[in-house]
Write a protein that binds this DNA or RNA. Sequence first.
RNA 1: GGGGAGGUUCCCGAGCGGUCAAAGGGGUCAGACUGUAAAUCUGAUGGCUCAGCCUUCACAGGUUCGAAUCCUGUUCUCCCCA
Length: 411
Amino acid sequence: MASSRQLGGTLEDHLAAFRRGAVELIDERELEKRVRQALADDQPMRIKFGMDPSSPDLHLGHAIPLFKLRDLQALGHHIVLIVGDATAMVGDPSGRSKLRPVLTREQVAANLETYTNQAALVLDLERTEIVRNASWFDGMGFEGILQLTTRMTVAQMIERDTFQERLGAGEPVGINEFLYPLMQGWDSVEVRADVELGGTDQLFNLLVGRRLQEQDSQRPQVIVTTPLVNGLDGRKMSKSYGNAVGLTASAREMTFDLMRLDDESMGVWFLQLTRLPEEQIAELLEGHPRLAKARLAAEISGCFHGAEAAAAAAEAFNREVRDKQLPADIPEVHWDPAFGSTRALANLLKDVGLVQTTSEGRRAVDQGGVRWNAEVQKDPRCEMPEPNEPVLIQVGKKRFTRLLPAAPAES
RNA sequence: GGGGAGGUUCCCGAGCGGUCAAAGGGGUCAGACUGUAAAUCUGAUGGCUCAGCCUUCACAGGUUCGAAUCCUGUUCUCCCCA
């Protein structure tokens, strides 16, 4: 009976799901063979994906493989999500031009929960097997680790481009970093992965998985790499560059951020972060970039927050940014007698929370970026009177606060 | 173990006794332009009770009227030799 089958879709459906937006498939023929077999036996493939809880938040870049996993999950495959609590302590050298600080167990544990919660925004965790790799590494002991290190030579290890670069530039490479690819590879052996997904920067680690599986008489996993998307400013997306869109961002944040994306990146984002058919994407890209981008924002923020919230955010964007209207909700602050010893505008801006420091406030005013009830103020030392009526204070284009008269004394 | 080179402001990187809150670039912020961008142009970019003052140049001491710059020790990184 068809209804009892675990796998849905045709061979082509499966291959298309694996292929969409993939940078590399190692290797394609092997994949096809295994998919055929899986379909014939109605045996879901074990698809591995690892996330290191090394930073507290996931961003849209991380969502790319998650979307692919979701597609595969929908076709009936078995997803094994590895939470790399052991590997996180080592620190992945992938794409790193710097020695990574070693995380403590506490830091890792703190990130762990937020990670799975955020993955759940894309994946159906009910149907996902989640394992922590500390569950096998912790019990491995010195001997086990030592065994693992005998599986590769230094020459093989330093073939890796990031190591090459750092060694060439006279930058430090930690010995612990050599452990990382071995550990990630070992994960594949432990979970008997048929396929592993990862970003293009993971290629080396993924290949180590194949090597270790072969050494342990397992069929080497098929590798699917997904591209790393650039952040909003064109550099690699990263929290520390401040160019990332977080998975937990509100519909408004997502929409506003996505509209800042440069035109050139739209194609990749459409392909990777929406499930629109490729022909439709091509069509959108033919049209006006603004409309295409609006659609992109609607798709992505709709995926996380629902069409309604996405539409509201889009509307807010049009109103506030395109038509330069005031935002719908402006933070309000009551005049407080405790506001600085001086009421000078620069100080007030800080007291009210619009800027971090008085100096920043001073600069903003000097540069003509501060409006007091729509009037540009030029003197940072000008003493502003306690308002009798709400006053709209604006710093730059995006920061607003409404200053209200002092709140009535509490009784 | 021996020898050499280094650790500079958010990042990269100049500075090598005063003229240094410290060149230049990146980022960021503000302004102009725009399609919402991107690119480009302009300016700003330690803090403060701001024509002055205070805190920064790995850390701790020292020399000097005066140190990011010199000396000593500590610590971290890289390179070469063993």
